[in-house]
Design a protein around this nucleic acid. Sequence first.
DNA 1: TCTGGGGTCCTAGGACCC
DNA 2: TCTGGGGTCCTAGGACCC
Length: 425
Amino acid sequence: MSRVFALVDCNNFYASCEKLFRPDLADRPVVVLSNNDGCVVARSKEAKALGIKMGVPVFQIKELLEKNNVVAFSSNYALYADMSARVMRTLEEMAPAVEVYSIDEAFLDLSGVATAINLTDFGHQIRQRIQQWIGIAVCVGIAPTKTLAKLANHGAKSWSKTGGVVDLTSKERQRKLMALLPVNEVWGIGGRLTKRLEEAGIHSVLDLADAPTKLIRQQFSVVVERTVMELNGESCIELEDIPPTKKEIVSSRAFGERVTELAVMHEAVSEYVHRACKKLRQERCQAKRISVFLRTSPFSDHQLDPYYSNSRSAELSYPSDDTRDFLHVANKLLNAIWKDGFRYAKAGVMLSDFYAHGVCQQDLFATSDTVRGNSALMGLIDQINQQMPNSLYFASKSAKQSWGMKRELLSPAFTTNWNGLPKAR
DNA sequence: TCTGGGGTCCTAGGACCC
DNA sequence: TCTGGGGTCCTAGGACCC
């Protein structure tokens, strides 16, 4: 049976979520900012029309924002995650298999559906239902491979006359669209590869599709070779409807203010250890390796503000999910890489080398307590913090955080907190 | 003055072993 | 004087994604 994938992608997702609860902003340009209100991470269509680019630092476009009355929001992940869950639930009701690919995108497996219903019609049904039930606009791309479905979605987004749905099951339509698009629009082809491909005379997506796979494998990699096969309608990347277990967990933040003192850095790193370990327990995993990293700003003038970046990792003698085990090691790692005299902009912690509970080979001298960790205690702490956020923490983490992030333009938690419920007037 | 956060996969090269 | 070769495992770094 030939495969059919759909990619459903929400339009301007974060900006759409903000607008949904602020009907007064319907036609206004809206942007959503990254943590620390640092750069633009989402733009409404009015903001895109002003030429505001994805990822630009806010301070560079301050005047443009003011002149055009652009409304800016700090990112409100609680809101976006909740809206995302509603969209995904709706998709799961409509399609036999769904892979949640990111907060605003999902792949659907429509392989069985194609015989029963016209695919373009089905795409429009999806759009209508999500618009009506949740209030978010989506576009739908349909094709025999995930890479082509991505491209079809890009087409649906770019040309309004498609009505937001592009079915690319026919070879002719595939080639027609590929001839129109530059190679950097392909899923998996980023900036570096685009440059190298162009040097090799490959400019359009069609150029890439028609390139000999042997040559591509030689000069680039198996990854690019797979992409070429997918562009030719040969499905190599399967739908992952069951999320694979994580292989690493990262917790890191850029600081609201530069950090120059070791004691303050210890506070921050402790906080990241807490967060990472909490995620680890939610994954029902144990980890053996932890690494700590820090860096100054890569953007500043290094004559005035010298650059320094370092990381170091270590292994516990047994896998654990107990915050205290990792705090102890993280403190030592931080001391080893810390250097006085720098203005640190960011730090973080990474957990890796995961084991399911009880799987790891125990060493001969492990006592039952070290092996068990103290998961009952950690579970209790997670539970209490769930009900009363941040009410319990270890002494290494301070309650007052001068290095914490800036979120000055935050919208209310409209859907996840009673105090944030929108008021009808 | 001010530039996000969290992931995955692949590959090259070093360490180690026989 | 002359100092191997091949396999595996691990890690760091580079590339990509949203």
